[in-house]
Amino acid sequence: MTEGSKPMLLDQGLSGSLSSDRDMESDWVAASQRGDNRAFNQLVLKWERQIYNLTLRMLHDPGEAEDTTQEVFLAAFRNIRRFRKDARFSTWLYRIAVNHCLSRLRRRPQGVHVSLDAERSEERIMSRLPSRASHEGEILSEERQSRVRAALQFLQPEHRAVLELKFFQELTFEEIAAVIEAPVSTIKSRLYAGLEVMRYRLGAFASDI
């Protein structure tokens, strides 16, 4: 995972006496459950980048991804008291995000977002993202990522969610099973099916790596 995907801890005042990210996150969750809005916003700062990129790759639309990310955090805030501390907060948050994305994808007209709009959506994504490419290598990297995002749109939403959690969020099979709330065997089955589609879509560009 790159530096960009790592959560940044902005509020050092809250984390003063805590030694690790996990402990700090637990404290923020506990404070949020007591109604501390500031503590919850620390959780937002920590996870917003992962959640936004998950929704962006799942929905392939920057505006919709932004709205969905906001909805995910709002839903998390409203239900934070229901969160059980024996589970990981990230697992719970990913579950909310994946369910929101799948819900939006199910409401979309079938097929429109896959083949016809793939390139157009990617252009919209590229135009809205801040351009950080300053030399040829970065431009190539951005093109490659654009290709991956476009190829993901050819997957079924459930398969896309599993690939997203496996390759981009780097969760284990068990963690993905906990997020999706399905058996590990089902997760593997979806992962291999999705990977096969991606191999056909991205195989021709293997030399770029």
Partner: peptide, 27 residues
Amino acid sequence: YGDTVRQLSAGQNVPVPRHFFVYPEES
């Protein structure tokens, strides 16, 4: 297959366009 998985794993997260704070009135 190996190249495909490498391409997927090489994916980087883009920065967020804004912060997604939850404000009391929203909640």
